[in-house]
Design a binder for these strands. Sequence first.
DNA 1: TTCGAAAAACTAACCGTTAGTGCTACGGTC
DNA 2: GACCGTAGCACTAACGGTTAGTTTTTCGAA
Lengths: 213, 213
Amino acid sequence: MTVPSGRRERKKAATRQKIADTALRLFLDRGYDAVGIRDVAAEADVAVTTLFSHFASKEALVFEQDEDFEQRLAQAVTGRAPHEPLIPALRREIEALVRHCTADSAAPIWRLVEETPALREYEESMRLRHAEALGMAIAADLGLPRTTTDCRTIARFVIDAYSLAREAADPEAALDEIFRMIEAAWEVTSSSRCTRGAVPPDGAEAGRAVTAR
Amino acid sequence: MTVPSGRRERKKAATRQKIADTALRLFLDRGYDAVGIRDVAAEADVAVTTLFSHFASKEALVFEQDEDFEQRLAQAVTGRAPHEPLIPALRREIEALVRHCTADSAAPIWRLVEETPALREYEESMRLRHAEALGMAIAADLGLPRTTTDCRTIARFVIDAYSLAREAADPEAALDEIFRMIEAAWEVTSSSRCTRGAVPPDGAEAGRAVTAR
DNA sequence: TTCGAAAAACTAACCGTTAGTGCTACGGTC
DNA sequence: GACCGTAGCACTAACGGTTAGTTTTTCGAA
């Protein structure tokens, strides 16, 4: 029950890191499909079962770093400046994420992902989880008691923006264009939210002002 | 090179159907994960390799019927009445598809899909393909020489509508709401398309009028 | 030092999927 | 009607990701 301070945690983290590094190196070297789990485990000098105790699947080895994606998006919603409208705040965060992916240092990894169907599929599945989480964050921010259709929808659109911009020839321009569309969609639904009177039943102060676009 | 008319084709189709039926029955009976490929093959009285010569994967057994999804969407775009605006036409088609899924007869299958992560993942991947195809159809309909970002974006949004509406408590209402948002997004991008002058370089007559919303 | 527990190892399998090979029945051709 | 090419299918055997079960090692705390 005590807090395991020290060596054990460090060793565990080191093992995890060694596995991830080895895997990425081999994947970039020989290609994702050409490298087996048993290869990675042998090269990292661990047992196969150990590898799977650190990573849920072979694909997860590649996306090791991007575990904070969800948190960053939620943070962009809940941690934005007071009275700052929602969509621009999300746009800024998405832009940063896209830039991070298209940066030269990360380029080989994303090329690997794009070339490998299994990895693409895995990432799509991740995106859906992210969209769901973002939808919840937006709903909470608006003070809604549950995730409504419009929150879920906008969340999907925002995640779509990330995905589409990454694949576009000019990511910045694509983001411009897509977020103009999202902005329009958001205005429609947020104005009708007022007339619908979807303010939570317990009254006034919960969440951010609904009128803040 | 002749058209193989007759028994051979019928036998092949019968084998395929028998496999699909058997698979669906077993899956609904015992659950997707509890039934192995070898079980399905044995019950359908075919070899495992035969099964895989008819279906690309275990998941494909479940989505056997919905192979015309892409075609239906493309048809909704290219085959709509002259001067009928794009988005409402798509809305009608999506509505029909959603109704088809939520109908009582298909309900057990979709419950199975929703309960099984592997099937959800597979369907997501299918949706992305559908979105890409729809984007191409839209671009072609507008007379654009290639699939632009806004076409791709609207296509994604439309597919999102399908996915979100199916999961919503009240699919009709959800479609209302989401398509209002899509309509707004489409107006923004289609009006700026005129000012951008994205008419194909070879001049006038290709495709439908850009001004038709 | 000793003990409990977490981490890692090892074995042995399960399951989806594929390659390789050969047989059989069907369809077109002479 | 006999012949031949081939499509459909069966069979074996394996590959690669993943997991269960069990045992050994390693660390932290008493």
